[in-house]
Structure formats: structure tokens, C-alpha cells
Amino acid sequence: MSTTEALVKELVEKNGRTRNSLMPVLQGIVQQEHFLSEEALICVAKELDLSAADVYGTASFYTFLDTVPRGKNIIRVCKTITCHMKGKDEVIKAISNALKIKVGETTHDNKFTLLSANCLGWCHKGPVMLINDEVFPELTPQKALEIVEEYAKK
């Protein structure tokens, strides 16, 4: 049994086999593997007795359920209007230069993926970014780099 298969079985054991458990199972996989591989989607379909297209349809609806490989840490910089006015472009540029990746790309060592995100609801403290589940408000390019460096050490 592959690790993905084992993970899916474990998640299904924990969350149940009804259609309602589809979301928690998918989220559980993303937490461990950072994205939903073809193998993972097929395993879920099998375990929950759903069509693979159905599982993919659900996954593709949610931005946070990625179906393309992602790094260990996913940086999402808010791209919406307030953060834009408060300088998110400079923040992205700084991170992009430091990690040598463009928005949408993943570093060679698979440590970071840089993405832009729709409004994160922190307009009063923009620009803001999310690394995995953690929010970092009131960024400057310098501050953003320091945070990323902390993650690089982890």
C-alpha cells in the first residue's frame, strides 16, 4: 500500500464513508501532501464510492484544494484592491526575487510555492499574506522576507 493510499484509508476511517466526508478527507490529504495527486483523488473516489470526475469536480471548486503539486509552504499574497493600494506588488517582487520563482511557481527544493489570493478579509491591515494557515498582516517587503526566512529554517 502506498503512503497516499494509507493516508486516505486512515482519513476515511476517521471521517466516515458518506459523501459528507468528502471535504474533510480532501482537506486532510492537502494538509499532509500539500496537494491532491491523481492517485489520491482515485483513492478517495474508491473509498467513498464516488465517480472520480465527481471528486475532481469538488476539488477543483476550492482554491485551497490544489490538484497540481505544491511546495511544503504555500505563500498566498492578497491581490485584491486594498492590499494592491498598500503595496502588495513590492511584497511579491521581494519574495519572488528571494525565492527565484514567479507567482504560481514552486521552488526547486519544494519548500515554497508562491501564489496570489483573493481578499483575505484583512483590508484594514494590508498588505497581507498567508503562509499555510498563518496570517501575516501589515507587510513591508523587508518584513515579508524575514518571515519567509523563518519558514525556510523550519
Partner: peptide, 13 residues
């Protein structure tokens, strides 16, 4: 889905 129980097609994105 309903008539054929296959669901080869789904709504994505």
C-alpha cells in the same frame, strides 16, 4: 449521474 449512474462528466472549476 441520475439516469446512468456513471458520472463521467462533472462540473469543474
Amino acid at each position: 449521474a441520475e439516469l446512468q449512474g456513471v458520472s463521467a462528466l462533472a462540473v469543474v472549476n
